[in-house]
């Protein structure tokens, strides 16, 4: 049952409203927002952060934070790429995804072990493992931009449809990787809503001791969660290089900040326990529209980073303020 009060206490409607207003603004200023190719470009830019945000959201819901997932994605895809190149692999792209997911799983398992079994603080652990993975990639594998195997190139060229903007003579292809995002979102939805494992993630974020007493296997759930984040990161890695048609080891650098900010913007409570996939997707959409439309609204590229910073601050500030004020109004309600 969704009452009006509950509806407006959530952040999804507000983020959606912000997206609508922003889109209309950009449309009014440039006339180029609601064009097929711009929307397809946006969807294209949306895939990678969207995939990463799924795991990121779950971790924050469980009461933790992970800043290593971009390093995991980069290293997993890079090792996979190198192995496939050196072995002259000509087969299906599925193997690439499986291998990369496997490497992601191993790295996620390291995070999971440190966090679930040794109960170490998540931020510091993942800062450490993130540095470890990045260092391994550039150090041990002396990574630099590299070719990708033909299977991945071919995968990158799979196009669902093409949107043409006749005014500007531009066309954009909708990559097939969007199906992976949709699939993952659907699986994540099922996991979070219809399995005890998924409810356990929320339960741990609400009260870890109570979860333990209720009979949730807290360690196993956390271990699973960080492994899952690793798998998702591995898959994201292959999606990314297939769309770019070459493997750039630094392609994910700094993206973790955007993703975390978007997840929080989408209403995920930073202290854990609350968060939805819908909100997360809306948060990412807002960030992507902002980032991709800066030029359309006339903000020079050199200022885009400052702009991102300002959005993170304003977005998290509004969310934090909203949480604080609902707490206050609840207090008032109880008094009367």
């Amino acid at each position: 049952m969704i009452t009006a009060r509950r509806f407006f206490a959530r952040s999804e409607p507000w983020v959606l409203a912000a997206i609508v207003i922003l889109s209309l603004l950009i449309q009014a200023r440039s006339g180029q927002f609601f064009t097929g190719n711009n929307l397809v470009d946006l969807a294209r830019a949306f895939i990678v952060p969207g995939l990463l945000s799924i795991g990121c959201m779950m971790v924050i819901v469980s009461g933790g934070i992970d800043v290593s997932f971009t390093a995991v994605a980069a290293l997993a895809m890079y090792i996979t790429d190198k192995i496939l190149l050196q072995s002259g692999y000509e087969g299906n792209v599925i193997l690439a995804y499986a291998m990369s997911a496997g490497f992601g799983l191993l790295m996620g398992a390291l995070n999971g072990f440190l966090i679930a079994f040794l109960r170490l603080p998540t931020l510091v652990v993942t800062l450490g493992t993130g540095s470890l993975f990045t260092g391994l990639m550039f150090g041990a594998f002396s990574a630099s931009a590299s070719d990708v195997p033909p299977a991945i190139v071919a995968h990158g060229k799979e196009t669902l449809f093409t949107a043409v903007n006749s005014d500007l003579g531009l066309s954009s292809n909708m990559p097939s990787q969007i199906l992976i995002l949709v699939g993952m979102l659907f699986l994540a939805f099922l996991l979070l809503r219809y399995t005890m494992l998924g409810r356990g993630i929320y339960a741990i974020g609400g009260d870890e001791a109570a979860a333990e007493r209720a009979g949730f296997n807290v360690r196993a759930i956390k271990m699973f969660l960080y492994c899952l984040v690793g798998v998702l990161a591995g898959i994201t890695g292959i999606s990314r290089i297939s769309m770019m048609a070459y493997a750039d080891p630094s392609t994910f650098q700094g993206m973790e900040l955007t993703v975390i900010a978007a997840v929080v913007l989408g209403g995920t409570r930073v202290t854990g326990g609350l968060g939805t996939l819908t909100g997360t997707i809306l948060g990412i959409a807002l960030m992507m529209i902002l980032a991709n439309s800066l030029i359309l609204i006339g903000i020079p590229t050199y200022w885009s980073r400052a702009f991102t910073g300002a959005v993170i601050i304003i977005g998290t500030g509004v969310t934090a303020h909203q949480i604080a004020s609902t707490h206050r109004s609840q207090r008032d309600l109880k008094k009367t």
Binding site: R193, Y194, T195, M196, L197, G198, R199, Y202, A203, G205, G206, D207, A210, A211, A214, G215, F216, R269, G272, G273, L274
Partner: peptide
């Protein structure tokens, strides 16, 4: 669990006792 609904708070323990995997 403060973040979950009354319904889930009441049902989760039972479901866990019954070793259910799905909600």
């Amino acid at each position: 669990f403060p973040n979950l609904t009354v319904m889930e708070n009441l049902a989760l323990n039972m479901e866990l006792m019954d070793k259910r995997a799905f909600m």
